[in-house]
Design a protein around this nucleic acid. Sequence first.
DNA 1: TTGTAGGCGTTATCAT
DNA 2: ATGATAACGCCTACAA
Lengths: 347, 347
Amino acid sequence: MSKVRILTVQTPTLRDVAAAAGVHAATASRALNPKTRRLVNADTARRILRAAESLGYQPNPIARSLKTAKSSTIGLVIPDLTNPLFPPIVRGIEDVLGPAGFNAWIVNTDNDPDRERTQIESLRSRQVEGLIIATARLDHPLLEMLHEQGMKMVLVNRRLEHVEIPSVTPDDSAGIAMAVKHLVDLGHRRIVHLAGPQTTSTGLVRSRAFRHAIRDHGLDEDTSLVVECDYWNEAEGARALRSLLDGGSEFTAIVAGTDLIALGCYDVFAERDISCPDDISVVGFNDMPFLDKLKPPLTTVRVPHYAIGAEAARMLIETIEEPSRHARSLLLPLSLVVRQSTAPPRT
Amino acid sequence: MSKVRILTVQTPTLRDVAAAAGVHAATASRALNPKTRRLVNADTARRILRAAESLGYQPNPIARSLKTAKSSTIGLVIPDLTNPLFPPIVRGIEDVLGPAGFNAWIVNTDNDPDRERTQIESLRSRQVEGLIIATARLDHPLLEMLHEQGMKMVLVNRRLEHVEIPSVTPDDSAGIAMAVKHLVDLGHRRIVHLAGPQTTSTGLVRSRAFRHAIRDHGLDEDTSLVVECDYWNEAEGARALRSLLDGGSEFTAIVAGTDLIALGCYDVFAERDISCPDDISVVGFNDMPFLDKLKPPLTTVRVPHYAIGAEAARMLIETIEEPSRHARSLLLPLSLVVRQSTAPPRT
DNA sequence: TTGTAGGCGTTATCAT
DNA sequence: ATGATAACGCCTACAA
């Protein structure tokens, strides 16, 4: 058996290490695992470590998982990796997870609840020890159910409505307030909001914050329309703006729910020969890459995506290692990046 | 034992299904596996399927992996998910893998060979059945070694120099030829190339193709400089262009090794008050998202990233399921997307 | 057609 | 401090 192993250059197992060190597999296991190493004589431990080293032994995480029902793996559930919002979050997560001995399984749901269910099921069957979720909707029975079943989770970017699950999100209200103040300071009085889906906390919080900000500045709420986009993308942004223009609304500035929605506005500007910022000013949200090179460079609210990912990972690890600790929600501060898509209104 | 399982609402195992159906676990296993189902009586099979259904049985992939040394999983090795080039490739891969019953593990290497080694090691220890690699360098001992050890692999975007490993890449030579022809047709005679790393097939093939194209059009090769960037990013693109300008080179057009390098040029244009395309024309490579909204919109070579991913996944699955089949390399056709960063030279 | 038995590589619980 | 043994959940010769 051992001979066969050598002949076929099979990767060495714990028994091979044990044999090489002249001990039982159990002892080798104890010596190799830092948490149980103190149970074994320092000398034999050293011998075993050396044997493992020289054989190039790598523990088999699958066998370990089967035995321990753990996996040192967490799942990362994302609606669409193609949205430039997510890669920096992923980086933040991985940079924290790695040193802590965890890996991340990334899955795309495509905004499809069925796909989300099967993807999460697949993560669960692989014994992930926790989930970082970027697909939360306000009413999200699946997540509530997982939470009740004791699945460790951290939400990023978005939250649930009634259930207290740990989350790391940008301070959306403050961000919108900055955007509106900036426009008001420039002299705008008729401002519209192209809101993200109101089924998400992010969409809802931002549109509420928009209304509050309008009121706080003493602007007429009636002239300040809010149009909802069904998705956080360019096509919906364009659609929303077209419907506003076709409806004959008068306004001089737009607060977009996200940069992609703002980019949809750029498409409509081109279609209809509207000049930005001369005719209409626009503010985005997120500060995705390359906005500084657009025509015009987009004024936007900067969200610390990398930090969101990193904090979420830290929070999840804490939740896993200290289950008693109760849910917290982290709100990360934002800043306004003023570029050239905003200017005083004409006349 | 079984009682405990029910009390703690443990996820049901094969034995639970077998018990519920009144058969032995082995029979249940056979019935549940489509490939062995014909070995079991149709009626009992049905009974077992129903039992599995009603218990909500999900096979434990970890136990299965341990037994079969397979995992229905492939590894996807990427230098940096933040580069907008990769997400569409990932999508293409996942869309093909999913229906075929495979999942993908995505890892970032950060262009760090050490990290790459440990990441691949970790994938291997998780029994991935194949690798899709986007980090290949011309001389890449690690990949050669894996190949020799029989690891199934497909390279995307880039290839190795001497070893024949299946690959799916854009037709870089044709792409560069189109870019150069476009500039020559506009009247440019002094064209430079900001090349990607010459340690990658992509960088090398593109710079060679550039030289050939220059010669084919009867242009003076001396005035057509090639400067190498160490990375495929903006900073390097900017650095390369600055060094060219500082060196006093005279040229009216740039063929950038990639869109990000072209974006680095945009930064330098802004710094030095150079007008694009009036003073200098630029062509990018890849057609990453949102280039149409830049100032000026970037003329570029469109690469079918999604298709590259999809084809690579198909190729890997074929390699896994038909190991005898020999290595092929797929070259996908490109097209030129003319926007406004290119125009006839001034004079 | 179905059951039996053993093992994949590891760890946890005994016993020594 | 170490060894023996069993078990995690599944699959597969082999036997019946």
